[in-house]
């Protein structure tokens, strides 16, 4: 038991400090790296709670994929120029601090004064059920591929839709005019000649009224 308390103390202190560092350090790259530290230590907490699967997912998805994505975005957008962002967002702080305090108070209130809610949170999977199923990964898989099979499948449609949307929005506009039928290319060439940025309402066809 004391081992667990020592481990929990270590994990929670480092996670909290790294969490503060994530929002306080100046460089966005350092911020992202602090986030990796947070993620690893939260994963450690999942291990302490006996959920190895969630810990692995936490490391693979957050540390492995999402933070790497952050770093790539920063590299590609060259975010070093925006290090003074905090001065720009000064006003938001007055909204952010009360909300953060409120959320913290809420969590503390649930944890301390309402033990019956935490009891409910165990839901259909109290620890002994999970043990019977053979571990948290098995328990999760059982639920996901039986009761929640449909949302799981629909999530793949959602990802497909989002991927197509991202491609449409990220595609180079010049390629679009090349992909359209030949008569459209002439039109596009016509408007391209007149202005670099056709921002007018639906200016794909030259306005020739009257």
């Amino acid at each position: 038991m004391t081992d667990q308390i020592v481990a929990f103390t270590y994990l929670s202190i480092v996670a909290s400090v790294a969490g503060l560092a994530t929002i306080l350090v100046r460089s966005p790259v350092h911020s992202a790296l602090s986030l990796v530290v947070v993620v690893f230590h939260v994963a450690g907490m999942f291990v302490l709670l006996g959920n190895g699967f969630l810990a692995a997912v936490q490391v693979i998805v957050y540390a492995g994929a999402i933070v790497v994505l952050f770093l790539f975005t920063m590299m590609l957008l060259d975010l070093r120029r925006h290090e003074t962002e905090r001065t720009v967002h000064r006003r938001q702080i007055w909204l952010a601090i009360p909300i953060a305090v409120l959320l913290f108070a809420e969590v503390a209130w649930i944890a301390i004064s309402k033990p019956e809610i935490s009891e409910n949170l165990k839901g259909a999977f109290p620890p002994q059920t999970i043990d019977e199923l053979g571990g948290s990964a098995q328990a999760l898989a059982t639920v996901m591929f039986t009761d929640y099979l449909l949302p799981f499948e629909v999530a793949s449609v959602l990802l497909l839709a989002a991927a197509i949307g991202a491609m449409v929005l990220a595609r180079n506009p010049d390629e679009e005019s090349l992909a359209s039928p030949p008569d459209m290319i002439e039109d596009a060439a016509g408007t391209d000649g007149s202005s670099d940025q056709p921002e007018g309402e639906l200016s794909e066809t030259p306005a020739t009224h009257g």
Partner: peptide
């Protein structure tokens, strides 16, 4: 209409 958008997408 909207000739410049990719209609299939």
């Amino acid at each position: 209409q909207l000739e410049r958008i990719p209609f299939a997408e």
